[in-house]
Amino acid sequence: MIIFSKVNKWYGEYQALVDVNAEVKKGEVVVVCGPSGSGKSTLIRTVNRLEDIQGGQILYNGHDVYGVDSNLNTLRSRVGFVFQNFNLFPHMSVLDNITLAPTKLKGLNASYVKTKALELLDMVGMSHKANAYPNQLSGGQQQRVAIARALAMEPPAMLFDEPTSALDPEMVGEVLSVMKSLAKEGMTMMCVTHEMNFAREVADKVWFMDAGRILEVAEPETFFQNPTHPRAQSFISDIRA
């Protein structure tokens, strides 16, 4: 579903991604972890070209993301992306946040889109707030709406960049449980997160990154019990501590 081959990226002189080769298979849940500044956000943001790459290739659902023929906006509309800071549109109701892209970009019928949006809100447990505005919601509620907004475009895969890092601890659970149920339904997911319990329970693979490289790809059990790379070992003993 998402294939990184020899991906290299520089911010000026600084190389943020170094020869990244990896694959997220259809229906897989991949958790990307690693110390701060290791390039996790950079990597996940290259998939929908929020960041450009300078070398290598990324295939998303069979499309060459950086190919000359790929239509950027169409590509992006097929990638579900969830941000750390939710980034809901504050001037629109919850419902309008969700229906905006399907109506304006896909030109779908308004009442159909609305019905679907209400189903999605129901799924994330937010249908009672359909007419509320984002700043009337808690962080956890906003993030659940943001997930519904991304799902409304019916993307074949969902990307999460630290979806719970901006949340108060008591709200982390509600967002993770929405993500878990998505995973259960077979959604392909790539998640940057520090929630190691989520990784343990839900992930099919854990990618460990450091200094712009993927140093280890393993099943969560193996990764947490017997990490092979020394950096991964120290990372895990750090989070245990």
Binding site: N48, L50, L72, N73, T74, L75, R76, S77, R78, V79, F81, F83, N85, N87, L88, F89, P90, H91, L100, A101, K104, L105, R149, A150, M153
Partner: peptide, 29 residues
Amino acid sequence: SSGQTEAARALGFGYLRSMRYIILPQGIR
């Protein structure tokens, strides 16, 4: 916040459409 533009772009809104539906309405407010 720049997150607004990013969210719009990530949904697939091009420059003019993210202006029209997301950025300008907030700017005018």
